[in-house]
Amino acid sequence: MIVSIVVFVIYCAIVFGIGWLGLRATRDEKDFWIAGGRLGWLVGGATLAATHISAGTYIGTIGVIYGAGWSFGWLLLSIPLGYWFMAAVLAPRFTRVRKLTLPAFMEDRYYSSRVRALAAVIILVAYIVFIQAQIVAGGLIANVTFGIPAIWGMIGFTVILLAYTSIGGMIAVVWTDYFQLAVMGIGVLAALPIAIRQVGGFDELMTLVQAANPRVFTWESLPPSLLITMGLAFMLGSVASPEKLTRLYVMKDMRTIRRGVLLNIVAILVINLIVFMLALVAIVMFPALPTGDLAMPMITHAVLPAFLGAIMLAAIAAAMMSTVSSLLIVAGSALSFDIGHTLLGPAASQERRMWLGRAGTAVVGCIPVLLLLGGVGQGELVQFIVLLFTGLMAASFFVPVVLGVYWRRGTKEGAIASMLGGMIATFSWKLYGSPALDPVLPGFLVSLALMIGVSLVTRPPPRHALEPFFPG
């Protein structure tokens, strides 16, 4: 307990220190929202990976493998394919015009401030739900580790996150991501050999897992249609989530982006594969957990020695915090930069713009915890909230963004219909559709059909909107 507290305090002190340095290094709005847009591949790739890997991995994925078996792990392959598409197909055209936020890109390409406002509202709503899921996971960790009520853990994490994110802006976010990715890597790399030794070695682990649950290494627990469409959700969502797309503006050029994406893919593959192995250890050692989401906290608590358990705890917190900080800064930009900028007028100083950004980020950060205090939004397994969020982002943004830079005929009406239709279809399928199919597929198809159909029957885009994106 004491060791956990000491490690956690040191971890937080480093994060705060980086936040403070971020504050000092932030000189204008460009620094605050995209860290100046001049990062190299090491920090750029690390921030992409740290943003991708969330409590969804350290609490959720392990929980699903614990319950449903190894076949879920095959979804992992869809993630590098998504990022490859991002680096090879999308990024070269998307970064021709460098903006500060995704809604600002949408406004330029679709020549309409309404498109920008709609994109910003979708981001705000979806991010609040997603941040909530992550904060709930944080509360769970605090409860298991420190024995404090989960709600206090949630409030505590929110305060820490807001402290460095809203003060230090994107510079603090990317550098804390870098540090946090290192903590996540150290956590799982150190935990794996010890956890395997606890069950008597690798061969013993394999025998015991199959004895405990003969279906672990089969394709029987999840329907193939669900596996494939969940993979599609991860693939499209990795490309189209605004917090990932913003990372393309953060890195300085295409060469950097290709290398950054490579680092990102390596980190995601390695960390996930180790987490999957830890799920097997949990199946053997704790065969009767009430929910799979408890598998990682139990390993941290009961399998690892105190010091390593504390590092692992910091790793789980880092996974959660590095994702939430990125979501906060992007949701804050949607509120302050994309919606609130009209409050300031064009003549406002950089200083005032940054303070509006800080205020917006703080407001967005308080909403999830206030909703939780009101009893809204607790319940589902973390991984499934992550999947719904990823599906929503994929169904709302993939088509307007990718076709936006590849199809001249895409119009603002098409983009609005595509975003709204994709989102509504995803939600409706989640509520009323067959659970054997991930909602992303209907959402994506509706989004694509509306984009093409509505664009073709409306007036083509004006030349001035297309020129920056289709030069020559």
Partner: peptide, 30 residues
């Protein structure tokens, strides 16, 4: 299906994907 394939296949497939990406990167920048 053979449990070994379900388990080890994922590691192999992940390594192959990574290798393919690196080769693509080399091809683009050569």
């Amino acid at each position: 299906m053979n449990p070994g394939f379900v388990f080890w296949g994922l590691f192999l497939a992940a390594a192959a994907t990574l290798l393919a990406y690196v080769l693509w990167m080399w091809w683009v920048e050569r």
